[in-house]
Design a protein around this nucleic acid. Structure first.
Lengths: 342, 342
DNA sequence: CTGATTTATGTTATCGATAACATGTTATCG
DNA sequence: CGATAACATGTTATCGATAACATAAATCAG
């Protein structure tokens, strides 16, 4: 039976070192005056007892928890978890802890609940990393002013007075489409993500506007809609082939769906890239090993997460100092990765 | 400029409702006697002011935080994040919050630090979801008894007196190998993960022991080692072909590396599965869409995470009630998913 | 040498909640 | 009808830390 140690508190240390708790506190935080001798004595006791100040108690008195609340969605997918990785990294560097909540639906009641439980934890700021789908951000935005801590959205439509950090999905789609144009393709189709998602809309818009700018067909027959999954990509591609049989290339809104396109093309003996150029979006670690390897738009989600943390911490500090915060949308630029498929 | 609301405390509510803070507390927690009229009045005020009890303060007095500490590693990969997803789900159901720490190296000092910061947050229990590599668990296990809260390891070598939940990697490898035997293959090669990882060792052991039991060759020339990445899979496969050119099938320790094998086989005009049967491990969402679709061992990481939370919560409650806890390793059985590649 | 500073430490109040205890009012029962 | 139990509410102590204030000794400046 292991010794069930009781938590060591500041009082234990104070008593063992023969000083007041305040002095222990001073030693721990390196503030104010403490004589070298006393400091040494206290430090020895701290070491010996394995004392760690309770962040709980500290947060309570200081009204500051050095904790960020993270609201995620779809963690089981690679995208959100790479963002989370960036967040975790940067939070660690800046001395913040993370309290995580996964959102599984977008009911107002549930959102309110999640928000409330984070606030009850006295988080210093909130990172909202759940995607913008239909109007699921509306309620939140309306209530922004009544949330007592700064909040920053990851991947949302830029909006006046709301802080956000997003990949520039539109620009990414433009780059993808222009790359296809650059290799001489004219009949460029598009398989989009679910059009309730802001990100899917942006990618589609990038494709459409680029096509139109070049006087090319971007009508509805040139595109179909998937739901990001490989399975849906297969369907979407088959539909597309029916509706637009003479396409010469396709911009697929994510790599998972693009994978299905490659596979289905192979099955139908459509040669990639000769007969059909394919370009994806996301740059999964596996995409370089698809057959043929996938040309794609790489979004740096790790960086996205890191920037998000930096920004929210700035917002927290600004508020602390009672400075005005100008809420601003920010964008991270994606990059084109050229491989065999286009 | 939004109104920068101050936090609403129990005192505010008490004052506004004209009762003592204790009565408010009673209403919030539904304990002891409160008259219907008073309850209603307090509830109205709570609603009106948007009061939420501070979990911080509550945790402090109750010596219980309803928070679990999670130590993760390699979040940017799909495996850990699916486990995390299961953890988040189940924690939510059982009313626990998560405080997350990502581990980026295995220095004793760093491990101690991470542990300490979780304990300072007064977590009620810890889930150690960082992989067992070489002897990186040793220090932890030695110090188990001095950690004042229960700790449960995810995916570690079963050990007397240590609680853990793991996928049965050995059994999964046995299933994979037996499946290949079942379709008449005899020259079964293996591409392992990095052999410093416990999971890689187990998978290799499953393959080796099954081969030996059937009197087949499982010598070192029949296997090579990768590092889980697709890139390493390509190298490992090429080496394997040099050392063991007449192999008829290969069990690859994860799907990412298996993807490279499929691709390289295609490039060399080796027909899969006719000339070379391939089986992977993990069952990535994309694996069904590889070409050909990949037969693999599916480990239910979501479930793993859920079981882990259930177990740690039981441990917490047992300790709360001063019951004895018998630390036990537990296993989750993987399943075989047969597709085209084998 | 004396008053102002600097140094060193202790005491009390506080953060926001609940536990433990106290007290008064209504029912209930023999 | 008086005693006991059930109901209803308030008061004080407490969790573990830091802030704010207080005090005393040592150092320093003129």
């Amino acid at each position: 039976m292991p010794t069930r140690k009781k938590r060591v508190t500041i009082k234990d240390v104070a008593q063992a070192a023969g000083v007041s708790t305040q002095t222990v506190s001073r030693v721990m935080n390196n503030v104010s005056y403490v004589s070298g001798e006393t400091r040494q004595r206290v430090e020895n006791v701290v070491e010996e007892l394995g004392y760690r100040p309770s962040t709980l108690a500290r947060s309570l008195i200081q009204q500051r928890s050095y904790t960020l609340g993270i609201v995620t969605f779809g963690l089981k997918y690679i995208g959100p978890s790479r963002t989370l990785n960036g967040i975790a990294d940067q939070a660690d560097k800046l001395g913040y802890m993370l309290v995580m909540k996964e959102l599984d639906n977008f009911d107002t009641a549930h959102i309110n609940d999640v928000l409330g439980s984070l606030l009850a934890r006295q988080v210093d700021g909130i990172l909202w990393a759940a995607p913008e789908i239909s109007d699921n951000h509306d309620w939140l935005e309306e209530h922004l002013s009544s949330i007592p801590v700064p909040i920053l959205f990851i991947a949302m439509q830029p909006k006046q007075g709301v802080s956000s950090v997003s990949t520039d999905n539109f620009q990414g789609a433009v780059m993808a489409t222009e790359h296809l144009l650059g290799i001489g393709r004219k009949k460029i189709a598009h398989i989009s993500g679910p059009l309730t998602w802001w990100e899917a809309l942006e990618r589609k818009r990038g494709w459409r506007e680029t096509m139109e700018k070049n006087g090319l067909d971007a009508s509805e027959r040139c595109c179909t809609e998937g739901n990001w999954s490989s399975a849906s990509g297969e369907n979407a591609f088959n539909q597309l082939l029916d509706a637009y049989p003479d396409l010469d290339s396709v911009f697929v809104a994510n790599d998972q769906m693009a994978l299905s396109v490659l596979r289905e093309a192979h099955r139908r003996n459509i040669r990639v890239p000769e007969q059909l150029a394919v370009i994806g979006f996301d740059n999964l670690p596996e995409s370089a090993y698809f057959y043929p390897s996938l040309t794609t738009i790489s979004q740096d989600l790790q960086l996205l997460g890191e920037e998000a943390v930096q920004t929210i911490v700035q917002m927290i500090q600004a508020r602390q100092n009672n400075e005005a915060v100008t809420a601003q949308p920010r964008f991270i630029q994606p990059t084109l990765v050229v491989r065999e498929s286009a």
